Simulated assay, not measured.
Amino acid sequence: MDRIYCVEDDESIRELVLYALHSSGFETRGFEDGESFFEALDQQLPSLVLLDIMLPGEDGLSILRRLRENGRTARIPVIMVTAKTSEYDKVTGLDTGADDYIAKPFGVMELVSRIRAVLRRTRTDTPAGVLTLGPITVDPARRTVTVSGQPVTLTYKEFELLSFLMRNEGLVLTRERLMETVWGFDFEGESRTVDMHIKSLRQKLGSCSEMIQTVRGVGYKIVQLPRQEEGRS
């Protein structure tokens, strides 16, 4: 049985969510703040976390960063649950490593549907293995990237984007497919978000930036350049 942890400081909302999820066949636990949540993680890991942004003490985005920076919890799916609805808040949560985003007020049926969709998607992820393409090496287990042996620091979503491109070397991936796979769902402004992350990723890859190629009107692909072209900016 899937175990869902809900981090929500509003007791009425937390109890409603826990009741609805329990009725839908999930094992559930609720927490009013990050401190109690992390104490529970030391004992048992959940299948998925519902995480509010506005919390007393440590906020949800900070909690999410801690989850993604810890190898033990980095792969736990997280759905952000918040009253904030601006595109900035959505992008911030997703870039930090959220797998989905749902805004209050929300319907219980929609919440359950999103949870099941995220669980299905994360269970069918390609098994982690070291990916190498030319000078680029990606280690999904350690979440490290090197270019010509030198470490490169990427954000959570930049890492996922590069990994997905490398798993599909030579294939043209549409913006829509990248958005669906890396960010998990569609939201307004998705084309700009993908393009912005590709631009940032290219900058960080430096001499290997040209390996990520734009297919005009379609999307992007990653290819290994002829040896004489490697190292050109």
Results as ranks from 00 to 15, higher is better:
6 C>P: 00
9 D>Q: 00
12 S>I: 07
14 R>T: 02
15 E>S: 08
17 V>I: 12
18 L>R: 02
20 A>P: 00
22 H>Y: 10
26 F>Q: 03
28 T>W: 00
40 A>L: 02
41 L>G: 00
43 Q>I: 05
45 L>Y: 02
51 L>K: 03
54 M>P: 00
59 D>T: 10
71 G>P: 03
72 R>L: 14
73 T>I: 08
74 A>W: 00
78 V>A: 09
79 I>W: 04
80 M>D: 03
81 V>I: 13
86 S>N: 08
96 T>Y: 03
96 T>N: 05
97 G>W: 01
107 G>V: 06
110 E>A: 15
110 E>F: 06
111 L>T: 05
115 I>R: 05
120 R>C: 02
120 R>W: 00
123 R>E: 08
132 T>P: 01
133 L>C: 12
135 P>T: 10
137 T>E: 14
145 V>R: 12
147 V>F: 12
149 G>Q: 11
155 T>Q: 05
156 Y>S: 11
159 F>H: 09
160 E>L: 15
161 L>V: 04
162 L>R: 06
162 L>P: 03
164 F>D: 07
165 L>K: 03
167 R>I: 10
169 E>G: 12
169 E>A: 15
171 L>K: 15
174 T>L: 13
175 R>N: 06
184 G>R: 04
186 D>K: 15
186 D>C: 14
195 D>W: 01
200 S>A: 15
203 Q>P: 05
205 L>A: 14
210 E>G: 09
210 E>W: 10
212 I>D: 06
212 I>E: 08
214 T>M: 12
215 V>E: 09
224 Q>V: 10
225 L>N: 11
226 P>M: 12
228 Q>R: 13
229 E>N: 09
230 E>W: 11
231 G>D: 09
232 R>D: 04
233 S>K: 09
